Amino acid sequence: MRLLAITSLALAAGVKAVVVPAVAPAGHSHSMIPVETVPLGKNVTINGVLTYVSLPQHKAFDPEVAILMLTDVFGLPSPDNLVLADQWAAAGFQTFAPDYLNGDALPMDGDVTTWIVNHGAAQTNPPLLAVISALKSRGIKHLAVTGYCFGGLYTIRLVQNNTIAVGTTAHPAFLTVPDDFDVIKAQSHVAIEINNAELDTGFTPALAVETDGVLGEGQYPPGYKRVQFDGVGHGFAVRANASDPVQVAAKQGAFDTSLAWIKAHLK
């Protein structure tokens, strides 16, 4: 399996590429989930990589289908990410959330600008590809990827390289607009859906609209959809303050939209 190289095609002449900036921890949505929350899944080692695995509790599932959940920068130490993986499992999918951050998740009070220096493709690709390879060798034939924040970047990489069956992402970070979407348009056959936030300071509504200009209006036959959630900011699809109905509705809405997209395009 080839590495997910950061590729740029100059297909949009005259359009200046913009790297989606990092959003500091304080700029993320924050939930009220207590750190002592007991997850339903468990940590296992897959091909040398720590991976949180959550299986449907009360329903049969297709062993040839799986969700690969790529967490945000807070990784597996964040109970919100584990609860989200459990939500995917409850929807009927065996769900795998690999520690592609190599045991170095960003603390809630960390500095993302220094953290990202040690989380480039050279560090991130090996554990990610190791888990994907292992899952496919175990008989998983249809792999859907859902990525959040930092995970959105690597969802886009997997879509670009046709490594997965379908992709969905929320408030993606660190990717380059429009270049990364030009690459998808030029070489991918994987359907992609994006959930963005009105108040996101990273993947802003303006960048989202620019993305539409590349993939929208039927320009990308495999399938493209973008849904904007108003009144919320970066991280809204992972964390919501339970006392804020706008945040709660947006988080659930992003999940429902992603679930419907995956079900419609998983093949």
Rank of each mutant, 00 (worst) to 15 (best):
residue 62 D to L: 08
residue 47 N to S: 15
residue 51 T to A: 03
residue 78 S to F: 08
residue 46 I to T: 08
residue 85 A to Y: 00
residue 45 T to P: 01
residue 48 G to N: 03
residue 80 D to Q: 10
residue 80 D to Y: 02
residue 74 F to L: 10
residue 63 P to F: 07
residue 73 V to K: 02
residue 85 A to S: 14
residue 78 S to M: 10
residue 46 I to N: 05
residue 69 M to G: 01
residue 84 L to S: 08
residue 47 N to I: 04
residue 72 D to G: 12
residue 76 L to M: 13
residue 47 N to G: 12
residue 87 Q to L: 13
residue 61 F to W: 15
residue 53 V to R: 13
residue 47 N to K: 12
residue 63 P to R: 00
residue 55 L to R: 09
residue 46 I to C: 08
residue 68 L to H: 11
residue 79 P to E: 06
residue 78 S to R: 10
residue 48 G to R: 12
residue 57 Q to E: 15
residue 78 S to P: 04
residue 49 V to K: 04
residue 48 G to K: 01
residue 60 A to F: 10
residue 72 D to C: 10
residue 71 T to L: 07
residue 79 P to I: 04
residue 66 A to I: 02
residue 85 A to D: 00
residue 74 F to N: 02
residue 52 Y to Q: 01
residue 67 I to G: 02
residue 85 A to R: 01
residue 58 H to C: 10
residue 72 D to S: 09
residue 67 I to Y: 00
residue 47 N to A: 15
residue 55 L to K: 08
residue 55 L to N: 04
residue 51 T to P: 03
residue 77 P to L: 09
residue 64 E to A: 15
residue 77 P to G: 13
residue 45 T to D: 14
residue 59 K to A: 15
residue 44 V to A: 07
residue 72 D to P: 04
residue 50 L to F: 13
residue 72 D to A: 05
residue 58 H to N: 13
